[in-house]
Amino acid sequence: MYRIILKILKTGLLTEPLSVTSPESPAPFLPVAKSLSIRHVDAGSCNACELELHALSGSYYAPERQGIRFVSSPRHADLLLVTGPVTCHMEQALKDTHDAMAFPKAVLAVGDCACNGGVFRGSPAVRNGVDAIFPGTAKIPGCPPSPNILLSALRGLSRPVSGDLPASS
């Protein structure tokens, strides 16, 4: 036990100060403020985008300090975050997940594949991105987009509130 406590003390606080929101990230489009609950659906990605979403949830980025959290049930979610080119086999499950979400809700495409099909564009087994199912979806490109890009984009999605959390929290 003492080793664990010692290690925790030695490690200290890993969370990094927030960077400025990237100008390339999508403009705020969610009618929610302060917190953002995300349901992720992998619609056929190669799993690198998932690795980056895992990395994002780690201590360096700590998205929860901004109220950004990943939820298990679509019923709890404001945002449907989609990775992968949307395979024919995942199309129905993706629609079902979206249907299960309560209003207001929005969809975000993460990674080149979800944006336009990426390297899988043109395959008869994919729908070449989320646009085919939910037209006009907001997009974060990258193969895969890094946690920093993801964090700054996600922070910018919800409506800005005066008296937002201080940047150094």
Binding site: G44, G84, M90, S123, V126
Partner: peptide, 11 residues
């Protein structure tokens, strides 16, 4: 399985 089938061989 097969939900993430992307038709890589055809591509």
């Amino acid at each position: 399985l097969g939900y993430t089938h992307k038709g890589i061989r055809a591509l």
